[in-house]
């Protein structure tokens, strides 16, 4: 089982003005920070809103979802004693808001699923894309992941002692995934694995690297921070490295020392 990557874009790569990417001010003003970040990354990935129509699959992943809107909604429930609840944060706090907004912007009614499986979210979304590619259900998909950190969430997790060794992070990443290799393909995903136990760097190399020049991204929290879909940023880095000439990149990711995953991105053979 494999799939081909045509383009990857992270929130850090987006330089186009949001007003150009999302001209509708009415839509824009209701979007929270994470929705703006994810949707603009998605639109940049497909080359503008008009690129959404040709997709036959929109698969998104998030571990925490639209946290700021969820917090705002819950705060309103408490402060206003379950009365006078604003509709916008309620509507926008759902996990599939980003996938939905992308589809609405492009008037696209294709397969649209959001995976919310903690630190496996991105890998499960990738697995779905690979299975759809394998079965011929989709040929030209948008795959993405996003998470945001908020001051209150960070404070709670810090009090739990979760960020003593690594910093919390946030980010968005989207990729165009094709079922078949074409002239736009820049890399292929050859392996996606969910090991039953944590693996050392040496074991990752021994079990998954097939080339002596293989580059290994092993728990790269220092660069991206730790959050449920931080492996998606590593995925973008891997695809860019392969596009620039690295034959193979193995991404190994744990989340707070558990739930290990492995993704192998290779050059086109």
């Amino acid at each position: 089982m494999r799939c081909f990557i045509e383009r990857v874009v992270t929130n850090h790569d987006v330089t186009t003005d949001i007003k150009v990417l999302i001209p509708d001010a009415g839509l824009r003003r209701r979007m929270s920070r994470v929705i703006k970040s994810a949707v603009t990354t998605a639109i940049e990935t497909v080359g503008g809103v008009e690129g959404i129509a040709s997709l036959d699959g929109i698969i998104t992943a998030t571990g925490w979802g639209c946290l700021a809107d969820s917090e705002r909604f819950l705060r309103n429930v408490i402060v206003d004693k379950e009365q006078l609840l604003n509709p916008t944060p309620f509507i926008q706090s759902t996990f599939n808001t980003v996938g939905g907004q992308i589809a609405l912007l492009g008037h696209n009614h294709c397969y649209n699923v959001t995976y919310v499986n903690r630190s496996h979210s991105f890998e499960d979304a990738l697995l779905d894309a690979m299975m759809r590619a394998e079965d011929g259900d989709s040929e030209h998909m948008l795959l993405g992941a996003f998470d945001e950190e908020t001051p209150s969430q960070r404070r709670i997790m810090e009090r739990m002692g979760l960020f003593r060794k690594v910093a919390c992070g946030e980010g968005a990443m989207f990729a165009i995934v094709g079922a078949k290799r074409n002239e736009r393909s820049i890399a292929e995903v050859s392996t996606l694995a969910f090991p039953a136990e944590n693996l050392s760097h040496e074991k990752v190399v021994a079990e998954y690297a097939t080339d002596e020049r293989t580059h290994v991204i092993y728990n790269n929290y220092a660069k991206y921070g730790l959050y449920p879909t931080s492996s998606a940023q590593c995925f973008a880095e891997a695809v860019k490295l392969v596009a620039e000439g690295t034959p193979e990149v193995v991404i190994y990711n744990e989340y707070f020392g558990a739930t290990p995953t492995v993704i192998v991105v290779r050059c086109l053979s």
């Binding site: 001010a25 509709p87 916008t88």
Partner: peptide
């Protein structure tokens, strides 16, 4: 201002709140 039906709900809340 080009407001829509969701904004109407928000305005109802402004009046009450």
């Amino acid at each position: 201002l080009g407001l829509d039906s969701i904004d109407a709900l928000e305005i109802i809340l402004i009046l009450e709140k």
